[in-house]
Nucleic acid binder design. Structure first.
Lengths: 289, 289
DNA sequence: GTTCCGCATGAATCGATAG
DNA sequence: ACTATCGATTCATGCGGAA
């Protein structure tokens, strides 16, 4: 039996498209990332105009296509913002352009953010979902579906728990949903496969750093698309949620960020604390093995 | 005070794009429809190839743009099918092309089909969500948000009893402008505005029509975008779910279907039962007033 | 130790105002 | 006219202190 080696954490400080050039072809099993959204987080990333978003992203996705293994998967968390009262179309255009690069648009998972930003506007309600686009290099890719199966009882229970009290109240006030009855049906089976809808709250007020997405999100995809010893990449690491989860799950991990503060913080948390350190200078490569 | 007239049901038998030509410009307040999916329900509608879907749909959306009032809304329920292991891109292309026709892509609601039974294929899980695309003719359109407010969770009750200091402070800062006019909002705040994610179970067991369109779905949009006495159109009527709900809610309704069986069944249910009938021949116009 | 309750805070959006 | 900034709006969640 082969034991996976200790997870190796690699941190790169710099522009994602540039830093990716140092990675080998066909070396990554899973890419999970949440790039800066158009015109968001200007103070951190400078803000990318919606009209230039596709143009900005394509060189990066070309590199990602190169470094991903043929059996690997790319999960892209993204959502278009409202511009002049309309949803902007850059995400749609990005999908079409990435297909021209050679990517296959295999699936679109939906992330239902139970605690989305509040607000009320004359023509729109709160936006409580984001896209989780799945891209692949070929039709056959690694997918370990059993790894994300849930016990039927637990699943039904957690489904109910995940619905939150608010949803339950709302459900009951709705006509003819029939949801409760279906739960009873599911209880007769042992295990169930999930669907392509993920219900997760954002982790907003967590300790020091607020994560763009909850740990459960990369965890789910890491389970589904990799095995221990595989390599996970996040080219927009931010607060290192993906890397933290990957390490805990015995996967090698590579993180890139243009903000040195994020890289050094990830270094302290994921590398230095174990005294497995080879710390180089700013804009250099940090490696722990 | 004006009382809305009895809901008027108009049924048209024939091709949607053709039959729409008999409707006046700017006469419809809300269009809610679920068109035949590409290559699906082939036995009924003749099947539209995914590659030709956009081309097939655009003449129809042009007519819909003409008949919709400037303040009206078009809700399109659609989901791309999987072709050769990939999600097909016809929905993305359709959105881009409809914008060229003059439509505004205001929002994308998400329909989460909760009772979708867990299942799987080798490379994907069960698809349990569909798009509900919202299109408009102009940025200002009719939206009656209060009509779809939902009960808050129980947790909110305690919050109501004791307004937090934060909330009080926010209120005081607002008093300056309008003598605390908004205070009433907080004290009566037992309802919240919904989000753009709709949780509704499908209704699977309906007669012959395979589309499991729950009544709660058109009901929600009819409440949100129309008032009693307004006119609702469904150019792919099918089993007449949208019309049935519209009639019950005191909205005039127009339904079109290429299948005579659907038209005559809708006639029997929605018109003849009230003996308000003017039944004409096949491929003619059925009207009850 | 549980449970309860107050509290801060988010990948937001709109309309008005200012340059 | 067109862009940049600012104030107002709003609610689910997890944390931490209190009962």
């Amino acid at each position: 039996m082969k034991y996976p080696s200790q997870p190796r954490i690699t941190l790169l400080h710099g522009d994602a498209a540039t830093e990716l050039k140092s990675l080998s072809d066909n070396s990554i099993d899973l890419i999970v990332t949440s790039p800066p959204y158009a015109d968001q987080r200007k103070h951190i990333y400078g803000g990318i105009s919606p009209d230039l978003y596709v143009e900005w992203f394509l060189p990066l996705s070309a590199e990602l296509l190169r470094v991903l293994k043929p059996t690997g998967t790319f999960i892209l968390n993204i959502k278009e913002r409202v511009v002049n009262g309309e949803r902007h179309t850059y995400v749609l255009e990005l999908i079409l352009e990435m297909r021209k690069q050679g990517w296959l648009w295999t699936e679109e998972f939906m992330w239902h953010k139970k605690n989305c930003y509040p607000g009320k506007w004359p023509n729109r309600f709160r936006d409580s979902w984001e896209r989780l686009l799945q891209f692949n290099k070929q039709r056959k890719f690694n997918m370990y579906q059993e790894a994300v199966m849930v016990e039927m009882g637990d699943w039904a229970k957690s489904r109910l728990r995940n619905l939150s009290d608010t949803d339950k109240v709302r459900d009951e006030s709705r006509v003819g949903s029939g949801f409760g009855k279906k739960i009873a049906n599911w209880l007769t089976r042992d295990k169930a496969f999930p669907t392509n809808v993920l219900h997760m709250a954002t982790e907003c007020s967590n300790r020091d750093h607020s994560a763009a997405f909850p740990e459960a999100l990369p965890e789910w995809f890491i389970k589904l698309f990799t095995e221990p010893g595989d390599t996970v990449l996040d080219p927009f690491m931010g607060s290192a949620t993906t890397l933290r989860v990957a390490k805990r799950m015995q996967r090698h991990a590579i993180g890139i960020d243009i903000q040195e503060a994020y890289v050094s913080r990830a270094y302290e948390e994921l590398v230095e604390q174990e005294r497995q350190l080879v710390l180089l200078q700013k804009r250099e490569k940090y490696v722990a093995s």
